[in-house]
């Protein structure tokens, strides 16, 4: 139970923090249609976070609700991967971040469909539909940018080199994931990695983009150690709940 709770925070925080990042772009997209698409993805992610936290809060059994988990933890208690808290940067940075994440999430949710925990399976089923759409959207943009103009290719390539280091963390497993994988609640995340790589490469090939060589990996967000960006993101996210504590909104 404790392991499931922690795993739910890890994937719930991924949804919340990326949803929060994308929400920053609302009203500022490069094309009206993209403004709508990115806002829509943000909305889906906030919805996923809500479902995941609701179940996590129930498992925790301390009378906290989804909002308390979303808004009232300390920075080191958030367990999202460092990838999702990275700033939006330019449109290529945003879309490459999304693409790396979407491929991982699609694979994860597909496997979670057969989770021995029925609630987890139900959350996965609901989220998978949306995630397939997100992946289609981000893949199409990676291809368009890679195979578009010289400038767009350069920016997409730079985004890949920049964000690549954070991707390994998506497959991070400690005692929590090892125990849950044994119990059939989640898949072995390390098994997802080659599938992820295969999918990423297939799209990058079409996009005429390359992966970096010999680059190290980085990231300890799953253990609550974040980048310097995280504190500022949380300052906005938690603003109302911190300034006006214990109120109904």
């Amino acid at each position: 139970m404790e392991h499931t709770y922690k795993f739910l925070l890890r994937i719930g925080d991924d949804s919340l923090i990326l949803g929060q990042r994308l929400a920053e772009l609302c009203g500022h997209g490069p094309i009206l249609e993209e403004d709508i698409a990115l806002t829509n993805i943000s909305l889906d992610l906030i919805g996923q976070a809500t479902n995941i936290y609701t179940y996590a809060a129930q498992l925790e059994g301390k009378g906290r609700d989804a909002d308390a988990l979303a808004f009232l933890r300390l920075e080191h208690q958030y367990l999202n991967a460092i990838l999702v808290e990275q700033p939006n940067g330019n449109f290529a940075d945003t879309l490459v971040r999304q693409f790396f994440f979407d491929v991982y999430r699609k694979l994860l949710f597909e496997q979670l469909l057969t989770s021995t925990d029925e609630q987890v399976a139900a959350i996965a089923e609901k989220s998978l539909k949306e995630t397939r759409y997100h992946l289609k959207h981000s893949s199409e943009w990676v291809i368009r940018l890679g195979d578009g103009t010289e400038l767009s290719k350069e920016r997409a390539q730079f985004a890949i080199l920049d964000l690549w280091r954070y991707t390994e963390e998506l497959f991070y497993m400690d005692e929590t994931e090892i125990q849950l994988a044994k119990a059939g609640v989640i898949p072995n995340l390390q098994d997802l990695k080659p599938l992820w790589m295969e999918h990423v490469l297939s799209i990058l090939n079409i996009a005429t983009l390359k992966l970096p060589e010999n680059q190290g990996f980085f990231g300890a967000g799953r253990q609550g150690r974040h980048s310097e960006y995280m504190g500022f993101l949380l300052a906005q996210l938690q603003y109302m709940q911190r300034v006006y504590p214990n109120m109904q909104w």
């Binding site: 929060q20 609302c26 829509n40 909002d67």
Partner: peptide, 21 residues
């Protein structure tokens, strides 16, 4: 949107602004 006080309010506001687009 980034400062909305609850998950529900954030989602509703996102949806609303998206409608406007």
């Amino acid at each position: 949107i980034t400062r909305a006080p609850s998950l529900r309010r954030k989602a509703v506001l996102l949806a609303k602004v998206q409608d406007e687009a």
